[in-house]
């Protein structure tokens, strides 16, 4: 299990390590002053919506403890919605409600949450339990995405999102993380979720890995993983590429969900996207980054960048 390789081999594979990501990619491409734009999901939503990037619709924002008391009334007509901390990280503090059971709220797992518990959750969010650095936060209430059924059978629980890494606005790698019974419905690769690399050119799955080992079928549903093809792929990439124009962040991770009716929706942006995407794609990111680096000085709009990337990384 604990096998070690050499730095030379990793360099040959073009793998980017954590230190290189921090020193070269993030420090040199992501100016600090731009961070609040992506660390605060409320701001992200406002700026992306402003230029017409599709996002899940906002129902309301809970800004003060005073609002918490009014939640019962505010939510009384809603069947499904999502409550998330505006400055949360790593999916912490996100509460998904899919339906109602009398006065109670039903979670995707089927368990119920009382209004009191829901208010406590929101209240904790406001006092900063889930935010970076424990700072006071606001809670956003969004509509529930009606997930497209392309991922049917590909995931044990929940619906996967598509992660695209953009370098200077060019999509360089994409993947999706499929939860398994072993990962307890969570999408963390190190907890046993399946990482599925997606071909930038076509949106088809490239290869799948679980615990770093290649696999063919989903361990729980048995579905053949090579059959996955993300629809509206070019639209999806165009959407992510435009996020670069809005945020100005040179090294950016975009999480996209597919809505049955609305198509690709931007869920959130990440100024420090992780490196697991290399494992899911089975290749290092460095050659692709170098290629984009060589395109410096050539002016391209979002569609042109995506076209270039689909051509180059096919």
């Amino acid at each position: 299990m604990f096998k070690f390789t050499t730095p030379a081999k990793l360099n040959k594979a073009g793998v980017i390590g954590m230190n290189r990501r921090n020193v070269e990619l993030i420090a040199q491409n992501n100016p600090r002053r731009l961070y609040p734009l992506v660390d605060d999901k409320l701001k992200t939503k406002q700026v992306t919506q402003g230029v017409g990037i599709a996002v899940p619709a906002m129902i309301g924002v809970v800004r003060t403890q005073h609002h918490v008391g009014q939640l019962g009334e505010f939510l009384s007509d809603l069947k499904g919605f999502v409550i998330k901390p505006s400055k949360g990280s790593g999916g912490k503090g996100i509460l998904v409600i899919t339906g109602r059971d009398g006065e109670d709220f039903v979670k995707p797992s089927g368990s119920c949450v009382t209004l009191k518990e829901l208010q406590h959750h929101v209240s904790s969010t406001l006092s900063g339990l889930y935010s970076l650095g424990g700072n006071p936060d606001v809670a956003m209430i969004e509509t529930l995405v009606e997930f497209s059924d392309v991922f049917e059978g590909f995931s044990y629980e929940g619906v996967p999102d598509v992660r695209v890494i953009l370098f200077r606005g060019y999509p360089v790698m994409a993947m999706t993380r499929l939860s398994t019974r072993e990962s307890d419905g969570k999408a963390n690769l190190h907890q046993g979720a399946v990482g599925l690399g997606i071909d930038i050119a076509t949106g088809r799955s490239l290869k799948a890995v679980q615990h770093g080992k290649p696999i063919e079928h989903h361990p729980d549903t048995g579905r053949k993983l090579s059959e996955l093809k993300v629809p509206y792929w070019e639209t999806l990439l165009n959407l992510t590429s435009r996020c670069y124009d809005v945020t100005g962040l040179g090294y950016l991770g975009a999480d996209i969900v597919l809505d049955k009716n609305l198509g690709p929706l931007l869920l959130e942006l990440n100024a420090r996207p992780g490196l697991a995407i290399q494992i899911a794609n089975g290749m290092g990111m460095r050659p692709r980054l170098s290629l984009i680096e060589s395109q410096r000085g050539i002016e391209r709009n979002a569609e042109e960048r995506v076209a270039y990337a689909m051509e180059a990384f096919g």
Partner: peptide, 11 residues
């Protein structure tokens, strides 16, 4: 990381 990315050098 030499352990984490080790699978990528196996092929």
């Amino acid at each position: 990381e030499l352990g984490r990315f080790e699978p990528m050098t196996r092929s």
